[in-house]
């Protein structure tokens, strides 16, 4: 695409969108948001990039190979937290066991942060993978083709 204004706008918005996704990710305990929404917003930044600069350019920034790894790592982060609490002698996903005897529930905070990070990573990678596969089947489309 050769639209100068679109290109510059996307360049300006790319980093703030990623930053906002990280804010949503780590502020989920205190306000609306969480891993799922953060993962989607993170993926949206790359989709915007792909819509403006083309899929091949985006795949150079965020290759599909890495996304496969992220998908699995995200899910393993979640289940891994569950198994961690099992190994510490508590029930599955009973985060209190991570920091036992904490007066202000530090274990719960750590546990929620870990699983939300897993959700965010998995959702981000999955959403972008689905987009890559849908968009990668067709040759690049022109402005008039819509």
């Amino acid at each position: 695409m050769d639209h100068l204004i679109l290109r510059i706008l996307v360049k300006m918005m790319f980093a703030p969108i990623l930053l906002f996704a990280l804010y949503v990710q780590f502020h989920g305990d205190f306000g609306p948001g969480g891993g799922f929404q953060a993962g989607v917003i993170f993926a949206v930044a790359f989709i915007l990039h792909a819509l403006c600069f083309g899929l091949e350019e985006t795949k150079k920034v965020m290759p599909q190979r890495i996304l496969y790894v992220f998908m699995v790592v995200g899910l393993l982060f979640y289940t891994g937290t569950g198994f961690l609490t099992l190994l510490l002698g508590a029930n599955l996903l009973d985060y209190e066991a991570i920091v036992p005897g904490s007066a202000h529930h530090a274990g719960q905070h750590y546990g929620i942060m870990l699983v939300e990070f897993g959700v965010g990573t998995c959702v981000f990678a999955t959403m972008l993978t689905i987009f890559y596969h849908f968009a990668g089947r067709e040759p690049e489309i022109g402005n008039e083709d819509w």
């Binding site: 205190f30 569950g82 985060y95 529930h105 699983v115 959702v123």
Partner: peptide, 27 residues
């Protein structure tokens, strides 16, 4: 739980097992 957002507490702590299933669904 000690988390201000009750939705997050339900989602990630009380119903953590459900959310694990949902993540698996996305995957």
């Amino acid at each position: 739980i000690g988390v201000p957002n009750i939705v997050t507490a339900v989602l990630a702590a009380y119903r953590g097992f459900d959310t694990m299933g949902e993540t698996t669904v996305i995957f």
